[in-house]
């Protein structure tokens, strides 16, 4: 599969590959030979009902679980040897965090920069200004010193998106980002993601329930199915060249 890689256009690199991935909790098989490839600038919707193995698969892609069979590759590298985690932005399920957690919006956005690459490093002035940029792009700069638990659902979504964008990622992982917010907020948030997909050099993997807004964008026919999981994909052709740009910088210019 990887030998044919060069035959793809430069904008069509393999970003995420699942190669016959299986996982079972004891005797209960959750994932059975899931195979899928996401290429550069794909918007992938991973749709499945509760218990279909969405969370398990996502935990494997972020490196918290090891597949019992099969292989996961990130940017062409087997996940066990993958080191460039800064290329990946992660937007969590909002319901996973405790609203009493003592953290300001700025602290949460900045935490997107904490990782192995910057272990033991102090927060620099440049880090702070990147956080300000990320908050500016998502129009949450006025909330910077507010406690995150005090924000509305839609505002919290933007905080987590800002945290994911601060590293200038190439792959955005979104875990049920629409859960627990009203329909209007969902639509606004998805509009934002759509815009980013069409105009920027980003690949999306969005884990979701069956969601009308998402499916109407991606198309109803899944590209791959595996058990109760379905991968819906839309590729973006809007950008002719594959120029690598600083995402925050260009988003900021667009205003």
């Amino acid at each position: 599969m990887r030998t044919s890689e060069s035959s793809f256009a430069p904008c069509h690199r393999e970003i995420l590959a699942l190669d016959r991935v299986s996982y079972a909790y004891g005797s209960q098989r959750v994932l059975d030979g899931v195979t899928f490839i996401a290429r550069e600038r794909d918007f992938v919707g991973l749709i499945g009902s509760n218990g279909a193995g969405k969370t398990t698969l996502l935990r494997m892609i972020v490196g918290l679980l090891k597949p019992q069979h099969g292989e996961i590759r990130l940017f062409g590298t087997p996940i066990g040897r993958f080191k460039d985690w800064h290329l990946i932005g992660y937007v969590p399920q909002r319901s996973h965090f405790n609203p009493l957690f003592p953290a300001t919006v700025r602290e949460v956005v900045l935490s997107g920069l904490y990782g192995r690459r910057k272990l033991l490093r102090r927060v620099t002035r440049e880090d702070i200004s990147r956080a300000d940029d990320a908050m500016g792009v998502l129009r949450i700069e006025d909330l910077a010193d507010k406690r995150i638990g005090a924000l509305s659902g839609g505002q919290q979504q933007r905080v987590f998106l800002a945290r994911a964008l601060i590293n200038n990622p190439k792959l955005l992982l979104l875990d049920e980002p629409m859960s627990g917010v009203d329909a209007q907020t969902q639509a606004n948030f998805f509009q934002l993601l759509r815009h980013m997909h069409q105009h920027h050099h980003l690949t999306f993997l969005m884990v979701s329930h069956d969601l009308e807004t998402v499916l109407s964008y991606l198309g109803r026919e899944p590209k791959e199915t595996s058990g109760k999981l379905a991968f819906h994909v839309r590729h973006s052709h809007d950008l002719e060249d594959c120029e690598e740009t600083d995402l925050l910088h260009t988003l900021r210019k667009e205003g």
Binding site: L58, R59, V62, G63, L64, K83, W85, H86, I88, G89, Y90, P92, H96, F97, F101, A103, E107, V108, S111, G112, Y114, G115, R116, R117, K118, L119, L120, V123, R163, L173, D175
Partner: peptide, 20 residues
């Protein structure tokens, strides 16, 4: 390690994506 411990307490998945 306070930055990393903060991230871990706040969001384990994000900490793992960060390579921690």
């Amino acid at each position: 390690l306070r930055k990393e411990l903060f991230l871990l307490a706040f969001d384990e998945e994000a900490a793992s994506v960060g390579g921690l």
